[in-house]
Amino acid sequence: MDLVEKALAGDRRALARLLSLIEDDGPQAREALAALHPHTGRAHVVGVTGAPGTGKSTLVNELAKTLRAQGSTVGIVAVDPTSPFTGGAILGDRVRMRDLAGDPGIFIRSMATRGSLGGLARATSDAVKVLDGVGFETVLVETVGVGQAEVDVARTAHTVVVVEAPGLGDDVQALKAGLLEIADILVVNKADRSGAEQTARALEVTLDLGRNNAGDAEAWRPPVIKTVALNGTGVKAVVEAIGAHRAYLRQSGLWDRRERERIRADLMQALEETLVGQLLERVGEEELDRWVERIAARETDVYTAVESLVGLKEHSRASGR
């Protein structure tokens, strides 16, 4: 496909178009992804997540600068929430990434969640594949500002950086529930503010608790790193930790194992989407409505309807004729 070839040859306009195609989905997107697939699998995908306003974008800006100084090219996908009421979105992460302008080794793309709830957009992992495929060596993925449950990034990224900031109240408590479990690196940003030391210590204690439970001496122990993203303090240590985590993944065999998990998840998702799509096309909206009516009227139930719809049982149509 033309767009893919151009993007592979370094045409940034084509790359941007390709990303739009992926976001809007459809058969062309699938063709493009198929054509790109042989080129993927090389980038180190690093997720940056954390509560709203902790400094994720500012940190991504600094990480990208440091990575560039070390010679790596950097693709960035920054996700912000779509308004559930209007379907619109304000994507503002670029505001903090102005230092990255004008560098041909960097490509930034903002993305709206478009209804996805896990902290990323449905198309984010495919967008990452596109950036990987066209040759970006590191891909940074900034999630929306998350609470505890939005942990999709763990499936998309090799390395997850969880960004904390002091003074968010019971933030460490919240971390325990979800984000801490997916963290490979913990950053306490805004270390210029009071309370950073306490936050870092509380995180260390919580980590050690989890570690004792796991009882695995070989396991990766997430480092806790204090940063001031505003002026770059501590950012080098984060980049080093990202590199160390990559080496750990490679040596332990986790890199390959996680890739297979990711592929399996992608495969399952694609299967579901395709099969459900095919079925709905065959059945049609009206037929579906009739089933809803019959279930509501207690003439039948959801499971019986499904059996009939997928043709497990050769059954009469919902209209009952």
């Binding site: 779509t82 308004s83 209007t86 379907g87 619109g88 979105a89 304000i90 994507l91 503002g92 670029r94 505001v95 903002s110 709206a112």
Partner: peptide, 9 residues
């Protein structure tokens, strides 16, 4: 945004 567009600021 309120009109349903994605606005990059």
């Amino acid at each position: 945004r309120d009109a349903g567009m994605e606005v990059i600021y």
